[in-house]
Amino acid sequence: MSNIIYYVSFIILGIGIYGIVSQKNLFKQLISLSIIDTAVNIFIVALGYVEWGEAPIYSTITPVANFVDPLPQALVLTAIVIGVGILALGSVLLVHINEKYGSLDPDEIRDTREVVE
C-alpha cells in the first residue's frame, strides 16, 4: 500500500499510451507524449526517495547528511529540459504537416498522399 505513488505514475503512463493509440489528431498525440514524459519523471524521482530523508542540500538546519538519492534528480533535471526541446520541435513539425496536407488526421493525410501519388 505504500507503493501508491508507483501506481499513480503507472496509471498516468497508461493514460498517455491510451491517448497516443486512440486519438486521431496529431496534436493530441503530442500532448499524450508529454503526459508520458511527466509520468516517467515522477516514477524516476520516486525511485530515489528514502523514508525520512532530506533534500540533498547542505545547510545549517541539516548538519548530518540524511539525504535522499540525488542521482535520479540530476537525471530528471536533464530529461525535463530535453522534453521541452522535443515539444517545440514536434509542434513546428505539426505546423509544417498541416501546411502541406491541410489536415492533422493521419488517415486523411494517408488518403491525400495516395491521391497525389
Binding site: F10, I11, L13, G14, I15, I17, Y18, G19, V21, S22
Partner: peptide
C-alpha cells in the same frame, strides 16, 4: 478498444 487493450497490457 484497441487503445484500452494496449494500455492494459502495458499496465
Amino acid at each position: 478498444v484497441w487503445a484500452i487493450l494496449v494500455a492494459g497490457v502495458f499496465l
